[in-house]
Nucleic acid binder design. Structure first.
Lengths: 417, 417
DNA sequence: AGGCTTTTGTTCACGGCTAGAGCATAAACT
DNA sequence: AGTTTATGCTCTAGCCGTGAACAAAAGCCT
């Protein structure tokens, strides 16, 4: 029932390797070795052996700490220059962004490209880009995480109602050889697809304002509204992976038919589509991002109406789940900044009386629109930073200790370029 | 971030002790030692040492397995006759029930008593009963779990709107010396209070129809409606412990003021109060259980209307959370049995189109009205079956290996009597 | 500049733990 | 009664983290 329990001496070592690497990753490679030793309650000798092993395996690289006080100077373990790299992608309705991420979370954007919203248009060019960069990074690639603006069914079938995507097999389209483009190189792992809201929540839990929260609620506002509960640092993604759809509950008393097939979904009253509808403009189909931003900037009435709908829904969710914090990303940040008062005026009366003394605080995300991309990265590292993931790396990198000159130049230049 | 990870050799042993004990508890002490050895991937020698240690500490007791095939017969580890006992209580609006539970989950009901619904009336007599039985069981008592029909704020403050309980300090009232009754004996642990819905969900996850479900939804129907998400075998109890209130979301479009202080809560349309209202009877105040049962048995129209409201709300929650199973307890079992068709007719249209192919199954609880009591027990054992919990037991039972005659008679007779 | 203090990295003997092999045990099968 | 089969028990080997002693590398003080 409980995860991650070592039962033999060997697993013990593996488990401590994971803990150390996880600690380095989570703090962004800022903690010194002596700090890590203290924080993880390790003996100095143990830490010594562990770090040496991880350096040997090409996972870590130590550099002198920039600041000293007294005593022998310590080192800062960070990503190995030829160490693991996660490819992360954020696929929106109108463009995609591909990035490479090192252990510790440093992100290098590799490519950004607009597309036409069709599965082939969006995923064909992306598949080729992944193949190209994947080949250049070689065995350093530990996984590919893809954030998508729609429910992701088990295995990667994606539906985006307002774009007409119905059960699109995203991993298959991404690895299929595109005409004129590269085919996916052998040995490249299959992409792991996730919902953009769930991944934004994951990033918020690891590097944003949900850090340390036992139970948090994250809402992501784009054309419509997504939301998910975060428990112990992990979004609750549902049994089939499609569980970040808090927008599809009838919380605001509407009776409009939602593209999802249900009636009165709350998400229809919050997001770019709702803003456009408020001012009488055409909406839907994943179009109108600029117009919606214009409405946000110029039409306080529409913004406040949307903020009130958001506040009413948040109150219902807070009643049900009792989160510690509520975080907003995407357009939610602007709604909160521009019409926070209107939001709170709808929020507070919707709360149960016992929650009104200390309602959970509402915060805009510190990660802005980057959350989904960062979450895609974190999902890759979550799979890697396990005993199994590290064992796989070890097997495929048997002589990482001695730096092979050819490998250096090829891989190193790519991530920095 | 991850729980339960051993980092030293000593913790390793402690961790394996917990795993073994947990396995015995979860299967109800039915697995043989050889099965446990295989299931936990232990070497036979290791299992030998572990079991011997746990027997020595007065935690386990081995008996010959009733059935053999070929080969040397094996033993079945079960609860030690003088081993740990959890006290569990279910406090409803009109009565409470106190039980003693052994490792493995065997329940012995100690006392059932009606009360008048006031904090003093309900908790005074209960506190005395706990003191009496607690004294008799002595150091065997590892904790007291209390299920209560209202939101439980951090530390044990309970609000039950329709009974007029406002921030009632339940642990304090339970341990205060009652006039003419027993005071709590020294050393008896403070009661741990939980919400009845959350505890029913916990029991369902451990011994009911949510077993093995990664994400499940549990709804408990009594006078009104409670609901909670179950993730990896644990109900998500919220930041302050009041997170099992799915009934307080406006999912059915009503505009009635709820006793909780919000408007249009879904829970007002599902439960005994709703049934009474449907047929024009007086409702509220935690009264009318028999009348409501009469309505359930004789008024199909009222039952179907309630079932439809339940179905509509479940659809919204399924949309949001994508659970694997939905389980119903309390009156929910009867609603499902008597008006399952009406429930499904409201359920299916409320689902997102992508969920209609394989909607999560809905099931009545196998535990009936016993869920909350069993959940209270499980919450006590969850705290006990940890490295810390077992260490405490070991310290307070230094000579458990040799059976002390006096201790035998006193403690043994009590649990069976 | 030289010695002292402080903090960290390294090495190694020690005790604890599990794995696994070999042997003993106790039943069912032939 | 002997054989087969599965399990329990015992002991050695190998691995792991601890903690102490020692080495190293800086800042601080005189």
């Amino acid at each position: 029932m409980f995860v991650n329990g070592a039962t033999t001496s060997g697993e013990l070592r593996a488990h401590n390797r994971v803990r150390l690497l996880r600690a380095v990753h989570d703090c962004g490679a800022t903690r010194t070795r002596s700090q890590l030793t203290r924080d993880l309650h390790l003996a100095r000798g143990t830490a010594s052996v562990l770090v040496a092993g991880l350096v040997e395996d090409g996972l870590l690289h130590e550099e002198p700490a920039p600041e000293h006080t007294r005593g022998r100077p310590t080192q800062v373990p960070g990503p190995h220059p030829y160490g693991p790299v996660a490819l992360a992608v954020d696929v929106r309705e109108d463009a995609w962004e591909l990035a490479a991420c090192e252990l510790g979370g440093r992100v290098t954007v590799l490519e950004v490209r607009p597309h036409d919203g069709t599965p082939q248009g969006a995923l064909g060019s992306l598949g080729a880009a992944i193949a190209t960069h994947g080949r250049r990074l070689g065995h350093r690639v530990i996984g590919i995480g893809v954030a998508l603006a729609g429910p992701v069914r088990h295995g990667g079938l994606v539906d985006i109602a307002h774009l007409g995507w119905r059960a699109v097999d995203v991993p298959a389209l991404l690895t299929a050889p595109s005409p004129g483009g590269d085919a996916a190189p052998e040995g490249l792992r299959a992409p792991v697809v996730g919902n953009d809201t769930a991944l934004a929540a994951l990033a918020e839990a690891r590097r944003g304002r949900l850090q340390g929260a036992g139970v948090g609620l994250h809402l992501h506002v784009d054309f419509d509204l997504g939301g998910v509960l975060v428990v112990d640092g992990r979004p609750v993604a549902g049994a089939g992976g499609t569980g970040a759809e808090f927008g599809h509950m009838p919380l605001t008393g509407g009776d409009r038919l939602c593209p999802c097939g249900a009636v009165g979904c709350w998400g229809m009253d919050v997001g770019a589509n709702a803003l456009l509808r408020q001012v009488g403009l055409a909406y839907g189909g994943g179009r109108g991002r600029e117009q919606a931003e214009h409405v946000l900037a110029t039409s306080p009435a529409a913004v406040e109406a949307t903020a009130r709908a958001l506040g009413r829904g948040i109150a219902a969710l807070v009643n049900a789940h009792d989160p510690e914090v509520v975080t907003l990303s995407g357009h939610g940040v602007e709604l909160w900044e521009r019409a926070g008062q209107a939001l709170l005026e709808a929020y507070e009366p919707g709360l149960m009386a016992i929650r009104r003394d200390r309602p959970p605080r509402i915060e805009g995300s510190a990660l802005g629109w980057r959350g989904s991309l960062l979450g895609a990265m974190e999902s890759v590292f979550d799979a890697f930073l396990t005993t199994e993931g590290l064992e796989l790396w070890r097997k495929s990198h048997p002589d990482q200790g001695r730096d092979t000159p050819e490998q250096q130049s090829v891989t190193h230049s790519t991530l920095d370029g």
